[in-house]
């Protein structure tokens, strides 16, 4: 299988997770991008963030909904 020949299920799951982040925080895609960029800006003042690998998700847990963001550091594994 070619590497870009991703299973459609994985595509669906990724698209769904992305759209649910927006639905759950009630932000437009533009606002999401703006928030993300601002977060990168703030964090970059202190640490070396790898902006290509950032993941943001809004997760529903037992008693709350939480924005869970992952900012990997550059050059880290």
């Amino acid at each position: 299988m070619k590497s870009d020949d991703k299973k459609s299920k994985s595509v669906a799951k990724e698209r769904l997770q992305f759209v649910l982040v927006q639905d759950r925080v009630k932000l437009t895609p533009d606002e999401m991008d703006a928030m993300r960029d601002e977060l990168i800006g703030v964090l970059s003042k202190y640490i070396d963030v790898d902006s290509q690998k950032i993941e943001m998700d809004v997760k529903r847990e037992d008693d709350m909904t939480a924005l869970v963001a992952n900012f990997p550091l550059k050059g880290s594994k």
Binding site: K7, S8, K13, L20, R60, E61
Partner: peptide
């Protein structure tokens, strides 16, 4: 689901929590 062309139970439960 087996072919990878439909989200499975675990996928959906994980997302909907």
């Amino acid at each position: 689901v087996d072919r990878g062309d439909m989200m499975g139970i675990d996928d959906m439960i994980e997302i909907l929590a």
